[in-house]
Amino acid sequence: MTTQKLIHALLNLSEIEALSSQRHWLTRLHPLAKLLVTVFYIFMVTASPKYSLQTVILLASYPVFIMAATPIPARTLLSKLIIPAFFSISLGLFNPILDPAYGWLSLLTLMIKALLCGFAALLLVATTKVEDIAYALGWLRFPKLMTTLFLLMFRYIVLFINEIERVITAYSLRSGGQTALKPSAWGPLIGQLMIRTADKAERLHDAMLLRGFHGHYHTSQPARLNATDTLYLTLWPVVFIAIRLITT
């Protein structure tokens, strides 16, 4: 179970990274334009009335258009989305019981909202490299330390997932197929991993210093917003607002 989860997480990250490296019109757009449109879209989806199924269906135009106009495989993104989206609205499952008249309608709207919001976030990372997302966050005045930490962590997560997967497989082979750690192994196994992590961090820090690290990464900054970026950044919010005006 644990190993499956770890492998799934690894596949997830590698697939998203591969998608963001593809070359098409959306990956070429400025990361800031894509981030701002995504945030505004999520805002519009969550702000739509809880019984207005029409609004959320029409708001689906954004991901539907992007999926249709780019080579991003919809199935890949949907497979990453369905389970987390279902869990995220689990509290809304009581709506039909507590509101017999319109509970199903509000639950259906909630489910679509969860899918749309998740889809928007995944579309952003599937079309924007992680370094560009960090740049866009920096432009939004996210602390520089946070963006550096975000980048560092993103790179090292893959390494640790790999390492933990190997450790859990070894544990499983020595304990008759058990993948859940017994209490006697809780401290020693995770503790040992943590000690190795600290050693790794020290080596990494030395390597970073040797390469001239002074508190943050130096990355090439994307060019300024061009006409296409500005059009993208203007057009979608207009569409979202128009949908809201038409349906409410």
């Binding site: 179970m1 644990t2 989860k5 770890l6 997480a9 330390l145 550096t148 930490l149 560092l152 962590m153 790179r155 090292y156 997560i157 390494l159 640790f160 997932i161 390492e163 933990i164 859990i168 058990q178 993948t179 859940a180 750690l181 017994k182 209490p183 809780w186 995770i190 991993l193 943590m194 992590t197 600290a198 790794k200 961090a201 020290e202 990494l204 820090h205 970073m208 690290f213 002074h214 508190g215």
Partner: peptide, 25 residues
Amino acid sequence: AVEHRIAYMGVTGAFVFASQMINFA
């Protein structure tokens, strides 16, 4: 502290992230 510990912060964060996927019986 930032310059000396940022690698440790990032790596420890990544380690905790990955550890969250471990099942404890």
